[in-house]
Structures are given as C-alpha cells and as structure tokens.
C-alpha cells in the first residue's frame, strides 16, 4: 500500500508535504515540463504587492558558497494584474494555491488579503513580513507589537488559511512568533532569506546594486532547521519549512523537526525537478520503513535534553 502523504492545515488537505518557496518557482508555469504541478502539495506564488513594482536595479544576484545572494526587490505586476492574468493560469491546476503578499503598511496587507479572500482559486495567503530587499521589508517582523497588528488586522478580513512568513533576523524571534499566534495566524513559513553582502575587490564595489541581498540555499539550512525546531518546541502551530532544501534527506530533517510541509526554494534553480525527486524520496523513505503515514515521521526527533 502507498503511504499516506497528505497533510492537513486548518481546513485544507494538501495531498503531500512538498511545496515551493515564494519567488523561486516563477509566476506562470515556468516549471511546466519539469514539474507536474498537479503533484505538488501546494503552489506558492512570488510576492504580490498593491502596486506594480519594477524591482531593484541590476546586478541582483550573486553566487556564494553553497548558496546565493539575491536582491530582486519584489518585482511584480501588482495585485490587479495578478488577479486578471495569473489567477486564470492557476485556476486550471487543482493544487491548492497560496498567494504571498507584502505591503508597506498594515493597510496594504489588509487591502491585498481582502481582494484575495473573494477568490475561490486561492486557498491561502502568506504574509511576507520578512523580505530583506525592500525598504520597510523587515519592519513588521522586527517587533512583536507590529507583527501582532498586521496579522490580527489581516485575520479580521480573511477566513482563508493565513500563513505568516518570518525572518530569522527578528531580534526577538520567538516573541514575534508568539505575537502572530495570538493574532490568529494559522501557520508559519520559516525562514525567509538572511541578509548578506559580497564585494568585488577589483572594483571595490558591492556585488549587488542593492548592496545587501538575501542569502539562500544550503548555506542557511542549519539555521532554518534550528528556527523550525524552536517554533515547534514552543508552539503547537503548523510550520512550512524553507531554507536550503535540496534533496529528500534535507526535507526529512525538517519534517522530523516538526514541519508540516517543506518548501523547495533556490534548489529549483539548480535542479528544476527537485520537488518531484524529493516527493518520491519521501514516499520511498516511508515505504521502506513500512510507515503508513507522514504523521508517523513528523516531529519525531529524539532529543534527550
């Protein structure tokens, strides 16, 4: 018998725990031909904002050991065009769609969440309060008070699955998480990228036009794992893990630490089929151990202290 990979968060049943990290999976089927979108547990969009954003100047990316820096700057066409042009594409796919949103004010987040709450194609909203590459990007994640305000205001306008995406850069990380839980978030995505920098020693200039960029890839995986574990140790709330997940083993580490789902990010750029390979790897891991369901693996890390 095939093991049961399905995962339930709030009122949504995802067919398996494998999803993608915002901003790493394109916006209109770039991975078709590599990935069967119907086989993913969920699809997460690139961040959508109220107004179109051109994004940061070039250069925007720089490779680093076991990862990369990016400062894309939330380039997107804005919510109106997203609803008009992108939603029709996703409506043909039966996989739950999670739309990632970001704003510069509480009002922005509320407006975006409200617009999306009317769409049957949208299963969930992910609040990006942790983008390091735009002005005010990290503000809402920096203090528990602000995080509480934005999550509770959004909560009051949408009954949909509400996920808060957090940054490891919050000074009081667990305080922010607690505030979001109290404000009514249904789940967390952890983690967003970590701010970094690189310099061209010939030109003596930063490698990125934005100076700072978000570090992603395997380089941040141990950090991400620690944060996922810390959230799960303190709170009974579902977590979608992100941070350097490249293969089955990586994904299982996060699930054993307690993650409900695993989001493949930067690895998509290197191995476009990474999600599909991880999915079959998890299935194989369960099958070989005669485990009937992913529930028998989640959060089973044995810690002696």
């Amino acid at each position: 018998m095939k093991p049961d990979l399905s995962v339930k968060i709030k009122d949504i049943t995802f067919r398996n725990p494998v999803t993608v990290a915002s901003g790493t999976f394109g916006s209109e089927g770039e991975y078709q031909g590599w990935v069967d979108y119907e086989k993913l547990g969920a699809i997460v969009t690139k961040t959508v904002t109220r107004k179109p954003r051109e994004g940061n100047p070039m250069p925007r990316i720089y490779e680093t050991p076991a990862g990369m820096l990016n400062a894309i700057g939330l380039q997107n066409k804005g919510i109106e065009e997203f609803i008009e042009k992108k939603i029709p594409f996703f409506s043909k796919i039966r996989t739950p769609l999670i739309v990632n949103i970001a704003g510069e004010s509480v009002e922005d987040y509320v407006c975006l969440a409200e617009k999306l709450s009317h769409l049957k194609e949208v299963s969930g909203v992910e609040l990006n309060i942790s983008c390091p590459n735009v002005k005010k990007g990290l503000e809402f994640c920096a203090q528990p008070g602000l995080a509480y305000e934005v999550v509770s205001e959004v909560r009051s306008v949408t009954p949909k699955l509400l996920i808060t995406k957090v940054s490891p850069e919050a000074h009081d990380f667990l305080g922010v998480v607690e505030a979001c839980v109290k404000a009514g978030t249904d789940a967390f995505t952890a983690i967003n990228t970590i701010r970094g920098m690189a310099i061209d020693v010939e030109a003596r200039r930063p490698r990125l036009a934005n100076v700072f960029g978000g570090l992603s890839g395997p380089a941040i995986r141990p950090v991400a794992l620690r944060y996922v574990y810390e959230i799960k140790r303190r709170f009974d709330v579902p977590v979608i893990a992100a941070g350097g997940i490249c293969c089955t083993n990586d994904a299982l580490e996060f699930i054993i630490a307690g993650a409900h789902m695993v989001a493949v990010g930067t690895a998509n750029f290197v191995e476009p089929r990474a999600t599909m390979e991880i999915l079959s790897g998890i299935e194989k891991y369960l099958g070989e151990r005669r485990l009937e369901s992913i529930d028998e693996v989640r959060g089973t890390v044995k810690v002696d202290c």
Partner: peptide, 27 residues
C-alpha cells in the same frame, strides 16, 4: 548575457533593461 540562477525565467535575477521595462535575459 547576464549572471543567471535558474535560466528559465523564474528567479528574475538576470534582467535586461528594455523599452518595455525589465525583461529576463534567460527567457
């Protein structure tokens, strides 16, 4: 030719400035 990560239009890292705004070099 710009620095690239994905090569298929997904990361928006390889942009080229055109009269019609930023376009991906790779796609």
């Amino acid at each position: 030719d710009e620095r690239m990560a994905c090569g298929i239009g997904a990361c928006l890292g390889c942009m080229v400035k055109t009269r019609d705004g930023y376009k991906t070099s790779c796609k």
